[in-house]
Structures are given as structure tokens and as C-alpha cells.
């Protein structure tokens, strides 16, 4: 993959207002929601109110707001490709880089670089927010599993973002791809978790397998371990991106 394609894709991301705003929402949601949510949890814990889950884990629950911020990251993955389909820009992109695999790989790497950098910043900022807002109940770097969660969660977020990119490349339409991705993460996956029979399978869904990297102590996933979970997500992402590459290469632009 020539680096010129990658650099052009980075420029595209940086110079489009909608992608910049979408990306800014990732830390804003995660930290903003964190300030409110973690403060109220601390107050509840201090007063012994029974509203906090009994298996409260500072490290895992101190990053829970990232799971809302991730929606903006999913949207970013979708917009990166569907924005080109919708506007017709894809034809210009492909006339500049006619090798579609080269084009797509450049786009994936640019998307991954941005998502990974932003995810690390967001996860650390949210962790520090939890540390500060939860006070005595908050996580610290020496908490059990803290290092693994801090290093691994951004990998999960990036993986899910790229999964969305792959799915969106196959579906092509922004509204359709966003609906599919968000309803999957917000509705299908949580509901499947409640249905006996489906529940066992749901452990291997991309989002649930991926989030096992965030779970420590009593909340640890009994079926899929943290790193195994990341590998499962990686497999999903690889499949989605391969399907996206195949679709892009086969179809008329």
C-alpha cells in the first residue's frame, strides 16, 4: 500500500467537519457522562444506597461510559466509507487510486490510526475521571487488571470501529449501516444476552467478545477470556473488512 493513499485518507478525515465533530464526541461523551455518572455512584456508595450493582468493580465500571462514547466511533467507521458513496466522491477517489485494494487498505489503516489514537486518549481520560470522581471507590493504576484494561480497551474500540467500516462498505448507505450497527450493539446483542440458548452464542458476538477485555474480578466473562475475546473480535473485524474489500472490488463505482 503506497503511503500516499494513507496520507490522502488522513487528510480527508481531518478536513471534513462531520468526521471531526463525530470524533470529538467520543471523548466528550465518555468523560462528560463519566463525571455525572461516577459522581452519583460515589454518593450512592458513600450512603450505602442499594442502587449500585453488588459486583461493582472500579476498573470495569470506571470505564463503562466509554461504551456510550464508542457509538460515535462506530458512526465514524460508517461515515468514513458511506460518506463517499453518498456524495459520489468514491468515483473521484477511485480514479485517483484505481487499485481498489490499495485504496481500501489505505482507508482502513488511516481509520485505524485515528481510532486507535483517539481510543487511547479517551480510555485514559475516562479512567482518570473515574479515579477522581469515584474518590475512595475509584480505580487506580495498581487496581487488579487495571493495566490490561487500559491497554486492551482501546484495541476493542478500534476493532469495533473497523468492524463497522467493513459492514458499512458492504451496505453502502449511511442510514442503513448506522441502523444495523447501532441496533446490533444496543438492542440485538443485549437482548440475545437474556434469551436462554442465544445467551451462550452471544458471548461470541463482536461487541460482547471484545468487551471481555474490560471485565475484571466478579464481572469477568466466564466463557470468553479477555485476550481470547479480543481475538474473536479481530476475527469478526477481519471477516467484515474482507467482505467490504470484496464488495468494493466487484461492484461498479
Amino acid at each position: 500500500m503506497p503511503s500516499s493513499t494513507f496520507r490522502a485518507e488522513l487528510t480527508k478525515i481531518r478536513t471534513l467537519r462531520s468526521t471531526v465533530v463525530t470524533l470529538a464526541l467520543v471523548p466528550l461523551i465518555s468523560v462528560g457522562l463519566g463525571v455525572v455518572s461516577f459522581t452519583s455512584v460515589r454518593i450512592a456508595l458513600e450512603r450505602g444506597l442499594p442502587v449500585v450493582r453488588p459486583d461493582f468493580e472500579p476498573v470495569t465500571d470506571g470505564l463503562v461510559t466509554v461504551l456510550y462514547g464508542q457509538l460515535a466511533l462506530v458512526a465514524f467507521g460508517v461515515l468514513t466509507i458511506c460518506g463517499e458513496h453518498g456524495s459520489g466522491l468514491l468515483r473521484l477517489s477511485l480514479s485517483a487510486t484505481p487499485n481498489r485494494r490499495t485504496f481500501y487498505v489505505g482507508k482502513i489503516i488511516a481509520c485505524a490510526a485515528v481510532a486507535l489514537t483517539l481510543s487511547y486518549a479517551t480510555v485514559f481520560a475516562t479512567f482518570l475521571t473515574a479515579h477522581w470522581a469515584l474518590g475512595a471507590y475509584g480505580p487506580s493504576f495498581s487496581s487488579e487488571g487495571a493495566l490490561r484494561v487500559l491497554l486492551g480497551t482501546p484495541l476493542y474500540l478500534t476493532g469495533l470501529c473497523l468492524f463497522a467500516l467493513g459492514v458499512a462498505t458492504v451496505l453502502r448507505h449511511t442510514a442503513l449501516a448506522l441502523t444495523v450497527m447501532l441496533s446490533f450493539v444496543f438492542v440485538v446483542s443485549p437482548v440475545a444476552n437474556l434469551v436462554p440458548g442465544l445467551k451462550e452464542v452471544a458471548h461470541y458476538f463482536p461487541d460482547q467478545a471484545g468487551t471481555s477485555i474490560m471485565k475484571v474480578g466478579q464481572q469477568a466473562d466466564p466463557v470468553v477470556g479477555p485476550w481470547t475475546g479480543l481475538l474473536v473480535l479481530a476475527a469478526w473485524t477481519a471477516c467484515a473488512l474482507l467482505a467490504g474489500c470484496w464488495t468494493l472490488s466487484r461492484r461498479d463505482a
Binding site: 471534513l16 467537519r17 468515483r91 473521484l92
Partner: peptide, 11 residues
């Protein structure tokens, strides 16, 4: 090909 095929939010 199509001059209007730009992303509207970019200069």
C-alpha cells in the same frame, strides 16, 4: 465526471 460529487463540508 460529476462536478457536484464533493463532500459538502470540506473546503
Amino acid at each position: 465526471l460529476d462536478a457536484t460529487a464533493t463532500q459538502a463540508g470540506r473546503t
